[in-house]
Design a binder for these strands. Sequence first.
DNA 1: TACATACAC
DNA 2: TATGGTGTATGTA
Length: 456
Amino acid sequence: DAVLSRISLCPHKAGMDSVNKNKTDEVIRSMSEGSRFYDNERRKAAQTAQRVQVMKSRAAVLSTGALQQAEAMASAFERQLETERDLSRVIVHCDADAFYAAVELRDQPHLRGKPIGIGGIGMLSTASYEARKFGVRSAMPGYIALRLCPELILVKPRFHAYEAASRQLQAVMAQYDPNFRSVSLDEAYLDITDYMARLTPGDVAQLPPLTTVADPPLVQEANSADSKPGMATDSAGARNLTTLEGRALAARVVHQMRTRMHETTQLTVSAGIACNRMLAKIGSDQNKPDGQFCLPADRAAILAFLANMPTRKIPGIGKVTEQILRELDITNCQALLQQRALLKLLFTPISFDFFMRSALGIASNNTRKRSERKSIGHETTFRELNQVPDLEDKCLHLCHKTALDMERKALLGRSVCLKLKTVDFKVKQRSVLLPAHTADEPVIKRAALGLLHREL
DNA sequence: TACATACAC
DNA sequence: TATGGTGTATGTA
């Protein structure tokens, strides 16, 4: 049953209310059990359980003195982090709703109202909201999805259409922040601080009223403030964007942006508004689909927002870390803070730092594009192959595609990494460092074949 | 440096 | 019958 936490539906995802989780998990389990995939998941679950055991036995022998010392260090660290807290920027996370599926429903009207999954028998990349009611999810094999929802219609992905729609969404976002950071076809971060500072009273008058913005009470309280004449400004006459009314204005700006995105693409986008990327990202999930959420630029409001937030909602905490924390009775951010001494002693400094920042809502607000890529490659899954020449062919083909991409993008690399997956889903990686940077196809091929033959 | 694991989309 | 592909970060030896 430790394996269940790996294969079952994540209960924190939006739209779970109408799903019969027990029934769905039972279907997933019964369809998976006995497969080589399931066996491998069991192996990995046992490994995690072992990790947890080691942690628990370390925790059991901690002296009160050690815990007190750790508590003091954690407390000092928290004070240090508070000095880094920056409430000054207005960060927006935009996330298109069920993006691939929404594009298909837009372009194929006969599919509307029906549950659809984008992908094939082997794997789905997106499920429409209709399909999600049945427990169908992205990253779920199509044949399991069909068992959960026999009416499900599988739709082959049309990436060119998604790319075109993505470009249209990005064109709207660029009006608000030309330096926005896109993270995928359907997600991006914006910093609209400067845009808001430039708004003239005329611009503000054009914005939709706050009353049309579906936001939580925290910001709706700003409604009354908003109706007061004028807005707080500093001595230079600049808007103070960290006040509730400043955030109410942000909510109106984002609502306008979402409306424009919908007008140009007929797609809906959800958004989160906060003072950093992490909080904005959590926010964009709060009122999905076609909703937005604005978190005040205020320490107390941030801590209150996070207190009961499940750890799994924190970007960077996946099913494994969630499980490990749960075994330590830590399921939300409040518990992360309360158990900080234990976390300090059981986890690495990097993990401890990450947990504390997450629980306090202190994170990066940098939305500029990330500098440069660190790797490039191709992989593909194929049916069981035993013949050496067949494996060599696969390897050479992947090298060819990679070398082509490298040439197209004018990139060089110095390390060649071969990834192998066995029929029982075990993954091996073998790598070699070349004497010099290269994009030369024969050089890459020789290196890859060398790694392959080491394993045969 | 080499390899494994976790995570995101 | 049947569980993906691309890329980043981190831990450990």
